[in-house]
Design a protein around this nucleic acid. Structure first.
Lengths: 338, 338
DNA sequence: CACACTAGGTTTTACGTATAACGCCCTGTG
DNA sequence: CACAGGGCGTTATACGTAAAACCTAGTGTG
């Protein structure tokens, strides 16, 4: 809102072009064929250009009863992963004339602010990561069309879900390590109450339980490098035979594990194989480079947006998980290498 | 928009409570003291609760002519740095009843979409990083109140600016390395046309030019680990005496430099001291841990929002750069250590 | 007792847009 | 020539809210 001079409205444009406000709306809304002559339309467009006219979105949204804006609720902004999700979602949205607004579930921003309070934008729908736990209750309150990312397909109360094939990723990791000969595993689990992490633990345990002679221990840490160092450090220093393979729920945890291993004088991969999950840029910055599971974040975001558009249209959202792929790098080797 | 049954309006609440719509607006807007009796007010609140009433934001925004929403334009989402900026800005905003919407300057999202197109939220103001170059032209177009982050105070056309004291950070780095005895420097510069990076190069060159016998070379790379590996690799392998200190514009570039150094068989810090700038989590994940300059991203965001609120109020924004601090870790040592 | 004043509301209006409903003139046709 | 119909617009209305202007009964005051 510029001080003093208020922004031009469609009425101002109409006056400048010598037509009615309705004509302006028709021309600028591209609905004028057969209703307004080409010359008049051109005059309107020129006047709009001249005045620097921008439609008032609040008025348009009120009139149309929809905003063509959706909210993407993410657990935090610190990961490339959700940056990718946003990028994919925004691309698909743009193709359909929609915009995407980000809502990072606040860690310390305020007292459990809800995304739909007076301050947030008016919305047509929501895409939410199941990790953004604190925002979820607020979301349930409004009955906006909702798509959940990485959420339990069973327990999501009818909301459409879009998932990465995390189970398959974990299976690929397990298969890789088993085939290298590992039998003693440590699982460095993310200490976040979210389906996508619970699945990792369950699936790993399930697969390993099928192989006789395997041992699996678990330790938990919040997803931060520091916490991971502490958790991995004490778990690796625990009495009993040391694990030869460390499966981390996430690349950041793996980075912490590297540090913990260094402090204990353990070499990677000779003394300890480590795997991650995400394939962040970080994975290739580590030494040795991290064997991890690549998640196609952009595809994930695209599918989420496609699902939401389907819901908004009253169509059935597409089904099927998004494939993931193991990327083998230098952090894994047979146990007891030289 | 729930299918079938439309959302309750203030009129529905009024009817349920047996009062007029105006009374509902007064009560829920907290402007009823001396206008509505306590008992009636309570009845209204109950009815609103009962019906699950949520004010229509589009209508409110239209009526009030403002949205209490500001846009934060960031260059990308992949860094913790801007996550911190957002967090700080959102906290201050929330204290004043404002919301913050993120606009990541699109890399591949669409054909130069502008943040103010039909799809974006209606806005009261904008905070923009000078790094988000592609979005800046669009921003100039609208005459929304604007605060620039990390931008040239001279050339910003009267828009308020809020800056980190990057110059001082670079000086601290230079002082640290000089006092360790380094004289041959390589500057790994971010290949981004932004004031905040230009300043780094200028200030480093300026300080070193004051010390006789110093040598400074520069190589450029986009801020990605891979590009940094290539740039640092070829610069370090160039003929002539090898630099003993590598000053990186950014922690990510430093991570790439680590990799390049490893490939060349250079030890850090014995053969090469490396510094970064940002103090990302990455800095402590590297081995050895990275000497870098800590930027207080949250404080930066807070100050940006405070400045914008001042502008919106017609007040003068606060001045003064935000201090930064060198954090010395294991990646720097005197040249030619054992 | 005339009058102002207050408490406790209600009626009305405006915000800027999109669009349904309504002209009006001109031309072609039976 | 009456009249249908297309071309080119205009007028009127509604979206949901906030708040200004208005109303009415009761109370205190001179």
């Amino acid at each position: 809102m510029a001080r003093g001079s208020t922004r031009p409205t469609s009425r101002d444009v109409a006056q400048a072009a010598g037509v009615s406000q309705a004509a302006v709306s028709l021309v600028l809304g591209d609905k004028w064929r057969g209703r307004v002559s080409e010359t008049t339309a051109e005059r309107v467009r020129e006047a709009a250009q001249e005045l620097g006219y921008r439609p008032n979105l609040a008025a348009r949204n009120l009139r149309l009863g929809r905003t063509r804006t959706v909210l993407l609720v993410v657990p935090a902004l610190t990961t490339e992963f959700f940056a990718g999700v946003y990028t994919g979602a925004a691309r698909v949205a743009a193709e359909h004339g929609f915009g995407v607004v980000l809502y990072p579930s606040p860690e310390g921003i305020g007292p459990a602010r809800d995304p739909f309070g007076s301050a947030a934008a008016a919305l047509d729908g929501v895409i939410a990561s199941s990790m953004a736990a604190d925002a979820l209750t607020a979301i349930r309150g409004d009955q906006l069309p909702l798509v959940m990312l990485d959420s339990d397909p069973e327990g999501s109360l009818g909301a459409a879900t879009v998932n990465l094939d995390i189970k398959d990723g974990v299976r690929q990791v397990a298969e890789h390590l088993l085939s290298l000969g590992h039998r003693r595993f440590l699982h460095l689990a993310a200490d976040i109450p979210s389906w996508t992490f619970e699945v990792r633990g369950r699936e790993l345990a399930k697969r390993l339980s099928e192989v006789p002679g395997t041992d699996l221990r678990t330790t938990r840490a919040p997803i931060s490098i520091e916490d991971a160092v502490a958790a991995a450090g004490s778990a690796l220093a625990a009495p009993g035979p040391r694990p030869t393979a460390l499966v981390c729920d996430d690349d950041k945890l793996a980075a912490g594990a590297y540090k913990a291993a260094r402090r204990l004088g353990l070499r990677i991969p000779e003394d300890l194989s480590v795997t991650g999950l995400d394939d962040l840029a970080l994975a290739q910055a580590l030494d040795p480079e991290l064997t991890t599971v690549r998640l196609d974040a952009e595809r994930f975001g695209e599918r989420g947006m496609e699902a939401l558009l389907a819901v908004l249209d009253g169509r059935t959202p597409p089904v099927g998980d998004i494939p993931v792929q193991l990327v083998v790098r230098g952090s894994t080797a047979p146990p007891g290498s030289p």
